[in-house]
């Protein structure tokens, strides 16, 4: 899967935001804020990547510190799919 490039990543202070542009404004009148991990995943989604690969890469970065990583990533990606922020390639 890959991210929808009509969403533009911006930041205010330490907050990361995704802003819909073009036709995506029809689906979302507002913006999305991401935490640091969400922002990292958004960068990974610039290229085609699976949920499993995302989990592996996050484990490389965070080690085994983050509990429920598989479940959290799955929930997050499902949210992004639901909001048309990512799509299957």
């Amino acid at each position: 899967m890959k991210r929808n490039e009509t969403f533009v990543k911006k930041s205010v202070g330490e907050k990361t935001l995704l802003i819909p542009t073009g036709s995506s404004v029809k689906h979302m009148h507002g913006l999305i804020t991401l935490n640091a991990t969400g922002s990292l995943i958004w960068e990974m989604l610039a290229s085609d990547i699976s949920k499993e690969e995302i989990v592996l890469r996050l484990k490389e970065i965070y080690g085994d510190k983050q509990k429920n990583l598989v479940q959290d990533v799955s929930t997050f990606i499902d949210q992004l799919l639901q909001m048309h922020l990512v799509h299957d390639v």
Binding site: V12, G13, K15, L17, G30, L31, I32, T33, L34, N35, T37, G38, I41, D72, V73, F76, Q79, L80
Partner: peptide, 27 residues
């Protein structure tokens, strides 16, 4: 990982205030 803004106006206010602290021309 994502924070859905249920209350959009307070979120925007908070962003404006954060931006002011950073000197960022957010609006």
């Amino acid at each position: 990982m994502s924070e859905t803004a249920i209350q959009y106006a307070p979120l925007v206010r908070a962003l404006f205030n954060d931006a002011a602290k950073q000197g960022q021309p957010v609006a």
